[in-house]
Design a protein around this nucleic acid. Structure first.
Lengths: 338, 338
DNA sequence: CTGAAAGCGCTTACAG
DNA sequence: CTGAAAGCGCTTACAG
């Protein structure tokens, strides 16, 4: 493989001149610039990334830390990964994907060894063990998801409280007075999935304010348990007219449960989910839903991170916590109660 | 961040001794070894990855090239990515994930710049434009999926021909004489998805040999089209007693279609799918299926790649093409025809 | 068993 | 506008 030295020799200039001609970081006579460009082209010169990283302390790589849990409904994760990866590439960065079970250790490894210029944390927990590591790390980070302590990183998340209120308000306005809310399984809360209780608590409170009866339960994340649960709930609360789903697996299972029970949506039951448009397409879910916007969140996280990485002034700006407002996408699955 | 020089100074030895003490690559007195280890620990020393890569020409990073297509059923991809990532980490490698639309260009970029020691290609097409780039690249590669020309890389795939035969034979043995095979959409074939016609052609031929009528059609990849297609086919071939699915979206859509038609499986219809165990769990598919084994394939690809990367003898061994034998996982969805 | 030195391939002040 | 040189942080022959 050709080095900058080969290019310089071929162009008849010094290595520094070749470097400057290629980077454009100082004035170069047009003639020399062309000779260097031509030599680089002819030799198919590509800078050695390691050497450049060593010289500049920049790798043009971002770490992406994804956590996987056995008991979790996986299809949602891919969209965040794609959003982060695509946005990063647009900005000139590659992605080092880390799926190690011990996220804290992995984070330390890739930042301490200077493999990455910054880091995006996915699937963040309320008291995420990666956070102290990130705060002590020599590289900045951003998270998708809201931890209890947001110091030392930029945070991006859906406004789950508002999402809960929007769900309740929407059905209340249509005249519903008894609703069921199925959240993620309780162990997701124990693991630190704050978005579960954030939506739930806000929905419960809003329901109380509106005089709406809300049966808030924790769900399951797998079939057939989640299907059974849906049936049990519909049996237990026959007078409930609306179903709120902060649980992807439950949403994916609902169509077949509804069909089996001969339950028409929205005539017999109004339904609002919380997932992404892409998820709805994959599972062909015919329900109105709060868009969880993984693409927007992933993209925002990367853009902010890159800004912090690249600008010396941005590096020391205060950290931000940014919420996306929930958008209710109508698919016609809500109506005046029966 | 501490450098090897800092460690050496703290331990009162030269940098080379510190390096050797840490790597164990030459004999070191136990006392010095301990002093160096202690100094490294105290200073939280982590080698700079770029510097090490420059000195050793090894990055300990593997590239993972994933292609995404708009018209594709995405959930399957994640399992390959996880398998590759987890296996790589086990072997001491990190993963550079590239999702760029222009895969050939991306491949050239990461290999020419020496960002990676080797490369895994996912979602490979029959005449994949990344292949010539890989053959010319200074780094070895492995693919999951079988291209037309396997020269210059290691290839791993499910034996889709055998899968087609196993499906037909299984139902033939039970007494079925008329079957429907739903493949991926035809545009997947046009794009170079050879596994589609590999399974299809083998199934067609085996059916002919066995005297079985096989209606082989291309499917859809999205709802609601795929649901409509299922209904149309079941209407068109009412005497067919078995359904073979080489199409994830169709498999995911079948339960609700069957329920809507009051169709019992396997009493009225025997069904065999082709997907992974994980996919079956996610969509709670109650059908017997040929395991597509993304974890095994991803893991094999990485192991072979790493062997080639690390061993000078393996580097020049002939390239391999390895097929996984299809395993029929019984879920009780096949029976003697009605 | 240990050290001084060269070299990996870049970038960027320093000097002219 | 251009070049010679230093330096980024490692590893590894070379020498003793």
């Amino acid at each position: 493989m050709a080095t900058i030295g080969d290019v310089a020799r071929a162009a008849g200039v010094s290595r520094s001149t070749a470097s400057y001609a290629l980077s454009g970081k100082r004035a170069i006579s047009e003639e020399v610039r062309q000779r260097v460009a031509e030599a680089a082209r002819a030799l198919a010169y590509t800078p050695n990334a390691g050497a450049r990283a060593l010289a500049t302390s920049q790798t043009m790589v971002l770490g992406l830390l994804a956590q996987f849990y056995e008991d979790e409904f996986a299809p949602a994760m891919m969209q965040y990964i794609r959003a982060v990866s695509d946005t990063a590439r647009t900005l000139g960065y590659d992605i080092l994907l880390v799926t190690e079970a011990d996220g804290a250790r992995a984070l330390r490894r890739i930042t301490d060894s200077r493999m990455v210029d910054g880091v995006v944390l996915l699937n963040i927990a309320e008291h995420d063990e990666r956070l102290p590591v990130l705060r002590a790390a020599p590289r900045p980070g951003a998270s998708v998801g809201l931890p209890a302590d947001c110091s030392g990183l930029d945070v991006f998340d859906l406004d789950f409280e508002e999402a809960g209120r929007v769900m309740v308000d929407h059905l209340h306005r249509l005249g519903h007075r008894e609703l069921i809310l199925i959240s993620q399984p309780e162990h997701v809360v124990h693991r630190g999935g704050a978005y579960v209780w954030r939506l739930r608590d806000a929905a419960v409170q809003r329901a109380r304010e509106r005089g709406v009866t809300l049966h808030a339960v924790y769900g399951e994340s797998r079939q057939p348990a989640v299907g059974r649960l849906l049936n049990t709930l519909l049996d237990t609360y026959p007078s409930a007219t609306g179903l709120l789903l902060n649980n992807e697996a439950a949403a994916a299972a609902l169509p077949s449960v509804a069909r089996a029970r001969g339950l028409r949506v929205p005539e017999d039951l109004s339904v609002i989910g919380r997932y992404s448009d892409d998820f709805a397409a994959t599972f062909s879910l015919p329900y109105s839903f709060i868009e969880s916007a993984p693409d927007r969140l992933g993209s925002m996280a990367v853009r902010h991170l890159v800004r912090r990485v690249e600008s010396t002034t941005a590096r020391d700006e205060p950290y931000v916590v940014r919420f996306i407002s929930p958008e209710l996408v109508s698919r016609g699955s809500t109506a005046v109660p029966r």
